[in-house]
Design a protein around this nucleic acid. Structure first.
Lengths: 152, 152
DNA sequence: TTTTAAATTAGATTTATTATTATTAAAAAA
DNA sequence: TTTTTTAATAATAATAAATCTAATTTAAAA
């Protein structure tokens, strides 16, 4: 098991981000490159507001609506996902591979959690156990707990 | 496996609801009895607005703020829980026993899902697999899919 | 380069929720 | 039972996230 940010060692260039946008059939604009760049950089599941604050430093005329629009577009294309939180503020998450979420509600921290073994267990469970009248498509674990830094 | 509403065959009287409120150290008011009653009755995870619409028929002078206050109180006392949804609207859920959620985002439907076997699997997994720096307290499955009525 | 379809901006708007404060009511005390 | 006290409710204002609108600008295709 490994937390997300430990897996991300490469900070992509604007060019690489632009290529990613066009691979998904999106027009390349400075705003989109910067928003996606911020989403990659701010790996602790930023809110739209977090991304705005980050990007407006580079693009001073940036509109909040552009951030919301761009994030929606990224979600629609499957580049990002939207996480609903208990405070009602949406948080955004870059999609790389399927993963679960660890929530610490005392400090609003969210981390991704990967474990192929866990996914295997869940896959087996749901293939064996049919739910009457419901077709499951996506299975996500929502683990609420407490981050204890410097503790194993 | 059984869906929640199939397990709930007893509709509690106002008296029983009042007893429940006082067991949790809450003052009994007509508003609280009606809100908790509506939460029990509207078993598809109502929003505050859903509950207001239901209860205002019985208590015409009811304020929306009272519904929000009462729901917050119920959540604080552990009688109910609050579910954040992808639309940003909060939904409320009576807590009876720990359970997971099935989401159908095409029609905003949410159902509870119980399975002791699943809980056992998850418990075993997390007792074996330690997450560095994180203490899990509550594990909830978030299953996104599609309800198909009249289909097994 | 010109064209056009799409993206961005600014600001108004919506809507769920929270905050405020006066009033009212529930339950404890006398 | 009546009084007292403490808490709950109602009405309404305030907040804040997110959406909508319409005019302007821009990316990229022709």
């Amino acid at each position: 098991m490994v937390l997300k940010q430990q897996m991300e060692n490469h900070i992509p260039t604007n060019q690489e981000i632009a290529i990613k946008l066009s691979r998904y059939g999106l027009k390349i604009t400075p705003q989109r490159v910067a928003v996606l760049g911020a989403l990659i950089k701010l790996c602790h599941h930023p809110s739209a507001e977090d991304i705005f604050r980050e990007v407006v430093q580079v693009i001073p005329g940036l509109s909040q609506a552009t951030v919301y629009n761009t994030l929606d577009v990224l979600v629609q294309r499957g580049i990002a996902s939207k996480i609903a939180t208990s405070t009602g503020v949406m948080r955004y998450d870059l999609i790389e591979q399927p993963h679960h979420h660890l929530f610490d509600e005392t400090n609003s921290r969210i981390e991704d959690y990967y474990d192929p073994e866990l996914d295997q267990i869940l896959k087996m469970y749901f293939s064996k156990k049919k739910i009457k009248g419901f077709v499951p498509l996506e299975i996500k674990l929502h683990v609420i707990g407490a981050f204890r830094d410097n503790v194993v």
